[in-house]
């Protein structure tokens, strides 16, 4: 299985590569459209700021490449947010895969949300073998509201999408690569069940 992690200069992607290696697979970092298109599984990471990340995707032409992918794609954290229509962070357009706008938490809660929170109403094989109310690790100031593509819900100030799924596209607001053994199980599910 050829696993490609899209490398567009966004943050800590080494951890994702290591997590996949711990599962016994190899992952390649690439920004080459041909390599990304040819992969069996694509991981779309993202740490940093939304509008500057989108600019990089626009300038490199990766925006259209990612939208047109037919194989399973997993966006993580900002990666998931960029797969939405729009983000309040830097008021930027997204890839428009998930039909929802990303908003900022209000100051009624501490922002960013940092730490372990629970996920429930789990849908799709991504969560096979994962118990309801399992804890996952999140670090974020912006969130995707609950919508028709929501496949897991978490709660901070209000219920929001902990994960989104549509056709071959999946996204998690949490970091499976940092979410201990449940996170590794989800990555394994993505590689083996989807």
């Amino acid at each position: 299985m050829k696993i490609v992690i899209i490398n567009y200069g966004a943050g800590n992607i080494q951890s994702i590569k290591f997590a996949i290696e711990r599962l016994g697979y190899e992952a390649y970092l690439s920004d080459d459209p041909q390599e990304i298109i040819a992969a069996d599984k694509v991981i779309f990471p993202g740490v940093g700021e939304a509008s500057s990340a989108m600019r990089k995707l626009n300038n490199s032409g990766l925006k259209q490449i990612i939208r047109d992918l037919k194989q399973p794609v997993l966006g993580i954290c900002l990666g998931m947010q960029l797969m939405c229509n729009y983000s309040e962070e830097g008021s930027t357009e997204g890839l428009g895969i998930f039909d929802i706008d990303v908003l900022r938490f209000s100051n009624a809660v501490k922002v960013p949300q940092i730490g372990w929170n629970q996920i429930s109403q789990l849908k799709t094989p991504l969560f096979e073998g994962i118990r309801d109310k399992e804890y996952v690790y999140l670090v974020h100031s912006y969130y995707a509201p609950v919508c028709k593509d929501t496949i897991a819900i978490s709660e901070y100030e209000l219920p929001y999408s902990a994960a989104l799924g549509r056709d071959n596209f999946y996204g998690t607001q949490f970091h499976p690569e940092k979410s201990s053994s449940p996170g590794e199980k989800m990555l394994k599910n993505f590689l083996e069940k989807i």
Partner: peptide, 28 residues
Amino acid sequence: EKVNIPFTVGGGISSVEDVDVLLHNGAD
């Protein structure tokens, strides 16, 4: 490479370059 929970690194960090290397190598 080994640990599947987040970690922070501190001590003597004083520049953007210092941070870049640490995050690039896998610090959260």
